[in-house]
Design a protein around this nucleic acid. Sequence first.
DNA 1: GAATCTATGTTAAAGCTCTTTACATGAGCT
DNA 2: AGCTCATGTAAAGAGCTTTAACATAGATTC
Lengths: 214, 214
Amino acid sequence: MSWSKQDRKRRGYHHGNLREALVAAALDLIDAKGPAGFTFADAARAAGVSPAAPYRHFRDREALLADVARRGFEKFADQLDRAWNNGQPGPMQALENLGRAYLAFAENEPAYYAAMFEAQLPRDIDRELSEAGDRAFAVLRQAAEALCATLPKDRRPPTLMVSLHIWALSHGIASLFARGDAARRALPMAPQDLLEAGVLIYLDGLGLTGEHNR
Amino acid sequence: MSWSKQDRKRRGYHHGNLREALVAAALDLIDAKGPAGFTFADAARAAGVSPAAPYRHFRDREALLADVARRGFEKFADQLDRAWNNGQPGPMQALENLGRAYLAFAENEPAYYAAMFEAQLPRDIDRELSEAGDRAFAVLRQAAEALCATLPKDRRPPTLMVSLHIWALSHGIASLFARGDAARRALPMAPQDLLEAGVLIYLDGLGLTGEHNR
DNA sequence: GAATCTATGTTAAAGCTCTTTACATGAGCT
DNA sequence: AGCTCATGTAAAGAGCTTTAACATAGATTC
């Protein structure tokens, strides 16, 4: 599993899987000290190689972080898509699943989430990164579309706006409350329940009462 | 205005206002490269003093950042409180003002906002810091209270929950969209309008229709 | 107004760490 | 076996952090 220094003799001069090991090391280090809390050399140390070795695989620390973020967005998009499950069994239930999956990801993969949203990476640093981000957002967008479609045309809000509201509320709750992190504030209820309640109230405001779609 | 190196002869041996100059330098540097993008020595350079000088005013870089964050929360609380204006002229209008002030702060003071919410400072690093944060949140809490009070008791939601929803939506929009930063995503409408629409829909869902309170 | 005290600077140096350059190794191919 | 290239190491240069020793000047006291 881990390619630590102990395996040095067995592996010999070459690591064999350094790129992956560096990504894994970065995730551990982000968990421990945040996306800004470690250096390229730290990652090398954690992977059991010399400080110069990572430069064979990533241009610099930022490129490593960008790769972590890209992988994070891909995992994220997958999990959101699976939770949405093509809107089955119904838009409302599927949206609830989607929201729970959103916060579950932030809670269970805080390192990925931090790399994705808190590492302050320039959006244009990498095309694959921004495309992966777009794929994740597309799931939310699709869900908003399905929900809006259940409303009569004359009372149908812009789906882009609805998806942005849901995203912003989810992200707000995730980043303020849903991470194990001591930097976060205490809450009177589970983040998932807070989000679910918020979304239900919001949908009610749109005229989407529960009975119609559950 | 600026206490740069050029003023060195005029000011002589002592800076005269180094503590403030360091805070100003930190804000500039955060604007330019993010809360993690500069060193203690950089701040000293920007203030035109030797690398050791800052230690007379802050224990370390983190303490400087914490002071910036504290000042930010205090400014933030002030501006929110002024926007809320004791709920005048009515809870709905005052809330809209509050929301706009929230996003205006994130937009106009991105360095403060970043220090407050993205610097990953341990919450317990400083009592004054966490108290200042509490004061800012208290304004939102107060607004939620006033809004909920306009509802009949049997349909009145928990005010803490309502304040958390509004905070999360505001913070989500601010951190995803409302910073000049190239890291942010493009938007089809002004962040302020996005927030206002979201809050109106949400309040509608609570049963607070505009007419009653405007 | 002179002496002293204290706050706030500077310089210098030790100890780290990052980053880069030049070199070493070994896996795959012919 | 020998070539070649990808992937590692080692060593050196540069910068940051922190401390200790010293310098300056504003404030206080007599």
